[in-house]
Amino acid sequence: MKISRTIGGFRLDRVLLGLLLVGCALLAGRAWLQDHPEHNPWSPLNLADPPGWATSRKLAALHGDPAECRAVLERSGVEFAQLEPAGEGACRRESRVRLGDSPFGSDAPISSCAVAAGVVYWLRHSVEPAAQELLGSPVRRVEHYGTYSCRRMYNRDDGPWSEHATGNAIDIAGFVLEDGRRVSVLRDWPGEGQNSAFLHRVRDGACSAFSTVLSPEYNAAHADHLHLDQQGRAWGFCR
């Protein structure tokens, strides 16, 4: 039997045409992913890349891979110091880094590398754009309540250990702008002003950078800060 020269004349022609179209689509998709690494789950994470479909999963994966996390910081041009492990038992901190040139200044906290990476990404892609757009000034300093506290959740005598026990969380209290204004979670979260809008915007932005985000909307224990941690879940909890 001779194959027809007319495309679609026989079933075999249609199969070959279908395979050709699929192959073209795959090649085009591969080229598109190469040009958009923020959407490519196989592309190495760079914190300078814009937010994408794969970013949150890549950030979450850093929790279990400190070496790759440090490579991400280096690849992204982030200044940081790697510190020796510390602590014992449930409060053993294998991953300890301190960010260098950051709005924390001399008060830069020591945290897990995964938290540091999340903070850098959050500041670049959420906090700074929101400050410029809603408040008309860049952020000069980020105020925080620390990262490490060897304790169980809510300081109970038993139950799950807090992510703070391993420095895998940070509590953000507020922001100081270049023009001197201060935005406080405790004071400014309620209401409908620009400061409140800014805090809600950066809370929402943190949800793509951290595994867990807890704000004053969660409970009274978080009335004065945003709790950000990196438990490593692919799909986080944000409230």
Score class of each variant (00 low, 15 high):
158 D>T: 12
179 D>W: 03
126 S>N: 11
179 D>P: 04
178 E>G: 08
160 P>S: 12
173 A>W: 00
169 A>H: 06
180 G>K: 03
178 E>K: 11
156 R>A: 09
191 G>N: 06
129 P>M: 01
183 V>P: 01
131 A>P: 06
169 A>I: 12
148 Y>N: 09
181 R>I: 00
133 E>V: 07
185 V>G: 01
135 L>S: 04
172 I>L: 15
179 D>S: 03
146 G>H: 11
127 V>N: 09
160 P>Y: 09
152 R>L: 07
150 C>F: 10
187 R>V: 13
128 E>P: 02
148 Y>C: 06
143 E>K: 07
144 H>M: 00
126 S>L: 05
181 R>N: 05
146 G>Q: 13
158 D>S: 15
172 I>Y: 04
141 R>V: 04
133 E>T: 09
150 C>I: 05
161 W>H: 10
155 N>E: 13
184 S>V: 00
191 G>P: 01
157 D>H: 11
166 T>L: 14
185 V>N: 03
155 N>I: 07
143 E>D: 13
129 P>F: 05
151 R>C: 02
184 S>M: 01
149 S>K: 14
176 V>M: 08
191 G>K: 02
144 H>R: 04
145 Y>F: 13
178 E>T: 12
178 E>S: 09
145 Y>G: 06
180 G>D: 05
151 R>Y: 02
192 E>V: 15
183 V>R: 01
150 C>V: 04
143 E>A: 06
179 D>K: 11
178 E>Q: 13
155 N>S: 14
185 V>W: 04
166 T>F: 11
131 A>W: 13
171 D>W: 12
156 R>L: 08
136 G>H: 12
139 V>N: 09
188 D>R: 07
174 G>I: 02
153 M>F: 10
157 D>W: 11
159 G>T: 06
145 Y>S: 09
146 G>T: 07
132 Q>Y: 13
171 D>N: 14
187 R>K: 14
175 F>V: 08
167 G>Y: 01
140 R>D: 13
159 G>R: 08
187 R>Q: 14
147 T>E: 13
157 D>Y: 03
161 W>K: 10
157 D>Q: 15
129 P>E: 08
166 T>P: 09
131 A>R: 10
140 R>E: 13
145 Y>L: 12
187 R>M: 02
186 L>W: 14
145 Y>C: 01
156 R>H: 13
129 P>W: 06
159 G>H: 07
166 T>H: 00
149 S>M: 11
170 I>L: 15
189 W>H: 07
182 R>N: 06
126 S>R: 11
137 S>F: 03
172 I>G: 06
155 N>V: 12
127 V>G: 12
168 N>R: 09
130 A>M: 12
153 M>W: 10
192 E>I: 14
139 V>S: 10
152 R>M: 09
173 A>P: 04
139 V>G: 04
140 R>K: 08
132 Q>H: 13
130 A>Q: 10
138 P>C: 04
176 V>R: 15
177 L>G: 01
183 V>A: 05
170 I>T: 04
148 Y>E: 07
145 Y>K: 10
161 W>C: 06
173 A>S: 15
181 R>H: 08
180 G>Y: 03
151 R>T: 12
129 P>N: 03
143 E>P: 00
186 L>T: 14
184 S>R: 06
146 G>K: 08
127 V>H: 07
128 E>I: 03
180 G>F: 01
128 E>V: 03
138 P>L: 02
184 S>G: 00
189 W>T: 04
144 H>Y: 01
178 E>I: 00
161 W>S: 07
172 I>A: 02
